[in-house]
């Protein structure tokens, strides 16, 4: 199957956008994971403080 220059150009542009979208998705998942970890740590610390009545270091 021989592709025309137009088909090749269109496929290349689509591939570039798919790659960019995948990278963006990975960054978003990573950012979300980091945020979640921070929130969980903060709430654990708050629970600990409430239970012991002290300020955690």
């Amino acid at each position: 199957m021989r592709l025309t220059p137009e088909e090749l150009r269109a496929r290349k542009r689509r591939n570039v956008w798919i790659a960019a979208a995948l990278v963006a998705f990975i960054v978003l998942v990573f950012g979300t994971t980091v945020l979640r970890l921070q929130q969980n740590q903060a709430s654990e610390r708050a629970l600990l403080e409430a239970a012991t009545g002290t300020t955690a270091q």
């Binding site: 199957m1 021989r2 592709l3 137009e6 088909e7 269109a10 496929r11 542009r13």
Partner: peptide, 13 residues
Amino acid sequence: QPAISTAQPEDFF
């Protein structure tokens, strides 16, 4: 008929 799609990213947008 084109052998593969010639759709552009703008079309998907």
